[in-house]
Design a protein around this nucleic acid. Structure first.
Lengths: 122, 122
DNA sequence: ATTTAATGTAATAACTTCTAACATATTATG
DNA sequence: CATAATATGTTAGAAGTTATTACATTAAAT
């Protein structure tokens, strides 16, 4: 399920959309970024562009805050989570996976646009 | 597979994103709309907002044009397709489906925002 | 009583999109 | 061939959206 991951990490949503999807204000969303909890990409005009993964993170932050955690605690959670992932990333990448990745890279030279992009369902 | 359909029909992408994703100009994208081939929603500020389904349609239009079809032909294709769907929509909705829909409606009172929305993966 | 944390608000600049109109290039048709 | 139609380009001005920065405010912690 590689394409799904791709989809979910495409940065295509402007902050206004994120506001609607999360019921947060722009101020809040930017503040969480300021605190290192999200890192949206920027388009050529310096506008923040969010991915579905970003949305998930933001909704999670919202939940934690609703539960009474403060930003500092949430930062700890994410730091810990990142370390846990480190202990997986290196192990996960082997054999079949490596072949798959190589193959994907070869197939995707030229970027998102060939006709196949359509059938990727985005 | 109801949530996926929901996701795919959420109108959250501004035209700039659609341009990047399709390699088309704003002029082209608006022209296809003018010709009745796509119907993006509008946000409160009258900006077009596209869904993933819209993107698929637009990419399909692009393909047809590349293959040498003109807009008129493409319009016919979509008209025919719409009629075919009519002969399914009424048949498809039965039994299990109906129960599922009812249940979904009950669970979703209040809209997109409750905590569950996060776990819906958007 | 203060400080800190999270969010609100305001101002200004820059970016993005909208509509409408006219231009152009390519294809179709008499 | 000449003309009409199709698809797209370009431009201009208005309006919507987002960015940054700074100051204000409310609630919680010390």
């Amino acid at each position: 399920m590689k394409e799904k991951d791709l989809r979910r990490s495409l940065s295509v949503l402007p902050i206004g959309t994120v506001m609607k999807l999360t019921s947060l204000t722009a101020r809040q969303i930017r503040y969480y970024e300021e605190q290192g909890l999200v890192s949206p990409e920027r388009n050529d005009g310096n506008r923040r562009m969010y991915s579905l993964n970003d949305i998930d993170v933001i909704l999670e932050i919202k939940d934690y805050l609703d539960e009474g955690l403060n930003i500092a605690k949430i930062q700890e959670i994410y730091k810990k989570r990142k370390e846990d992932n480190k202990n997986n990333d290196t192990k996960e990448l082997t054999d079949q996976e490596a072949r798959k990745i190589l193959s994907d890279e070869l197939l995707n030279i030229g970027g998102l646009n060939s006709h196949d992009a359509a059938n990727n369902s985005f």
